[in-house]
Design a protein around this nucleic acid. Structure first.
Lengths: 205, 205
DNA sequence: ATTACTAATTCACGAGTAA
DNA sequence: TTTACTCGTGAATTAGTAA
């Protein structure tokens, strides 16, 4: 696939059954060029054509979907001091609505309680801000009785080889210097941690 | 923005703070080319650079977001015969969980009942299939007591100047020949319709 | 290390036109 | 109508290299 042809894939994803002439108008590229792009995309099996116009093939749909999520695997390292949360974390993580999703999407049943880190440097706070804008593992919101519990995003993370996850609630705007983590075990006890201990976190982004 | 530079915008959307060299690896284009693209994107104010790498600016974020939803406004016309549903429609549409969303996102409080059309031609059935794959107005699922009610997609639609909407439940796989519509009024009564009447629907996609 | 300039090369573009 | 071919032209690419 030539880079420019991405335009057509996005367009066809949004509106299957388009004509080449329509795409030409929307993108602002001559019909001849659109045609050339479409010929290549068809030869690659990403696009098909019928009497109603062009559409993505199954492969094309998969391709554009995975492309839109394209990102390199990177590790971001943060360091911060352990602080006490307000005990809210334990309440939320204890709810089946969150706990089950974490089990299913991240791979462990979280210990009902969160580890709160106060990041040491403003560099790390800045990186934390970047993290909050990234698309991680989506945890859906849900309704429990009359209360609504919001969405969150997670990233796989490690503290001293202990596998866990960073938890970023979508709507509540924590301080950029605060990072919240969940683990399958009571990490405070397992690693004999206390408030003020300096910890290094490796986050998979 | 040159067309190719879209790659970088998508990438930076997914992973802000990337280095040019990383983007080069992921996209498979030499670093020199990435650099040239980034120079242009910065001069256009879509991308900014700091000590941590490149990120989208606010304008860049808005730009890529609107691009990903790019599609031409089109009208699709269907014709079909009015048939009786199973009365399920009325039950679902009557639920506040759906009704309120339709009011908010489409602009009218739906009459609790749906109009079911049996499409006349296989051409129309094929177009209906295309419609089901398009991204329309999203109606979220919700939980009511123990029951879960699934997502749906809507499109603005008209029957004889009467404004309504096509309703496409996400998970239930209706026959492609069946189209379900909602209106702010009891259209059957208002237009004195009866089963078997031939109707033309204009759908905004 | 990362980023960006210059210059040689390539190959994508699109007007004309046919099917 | 819509789609796609040819081919002359020029813009986009990228290796080499510097900062």
């Amino acid at each position: 696939m030539k880079k420019n042809e991405l335009f057509l894939l996005v367009l066809l994803k949004n509106a299957p059954g388009l004509r080449g002439t329509e795409m030409s108008e929307v993108i602002g590229v001559p019909q001849q060029t659109i045609s050339r792009w479409l010929v290549e995309l068809q030869s690659e099996g990403l696009v098909s054509r019928d009497a109603f116009g062009y559409s993505l093939t199954v492969e094309g749909t998969a391709f554009i979907k995975s492309f839109l999520e394209l990102k390199p695997r990177r590790k971001m390292v943060f360091s911060g001091k352990l602080v006490s949360g307000l005990g809210e974390g334990a309440y939320y993580i204890g709810l089946a609505g969150y706990s089950n999703q974490i089990k299913q999407k991240i791979g462990f049943t979280p210990f009902p309680g969160t580890l709160n880190l106060k990041l040491s440097s403003s560099k790390d706070a800045r990186k934390n801000d970047l993290l909050r804008n990234m698309k991680g593992i989506q945890i859906d919101g849900f309704k429990e009785g009359n209360r609504f519990f919001g969405e969150a995003t997670c990233f796989h993370a490690k503290i001293n080889s202990e596998e866990g996850a960073v938890l970023i609630p979508k709507r509540t705007h924590h301080d950029s210097k605060v990072m919240e983590l969940v683990f399958p075990v009571a990490l405070r006890q397992k690693l004999k941690l206390k408030d003020g201990d300096l910890l290094k976190v490796q986050v998979e982004v």
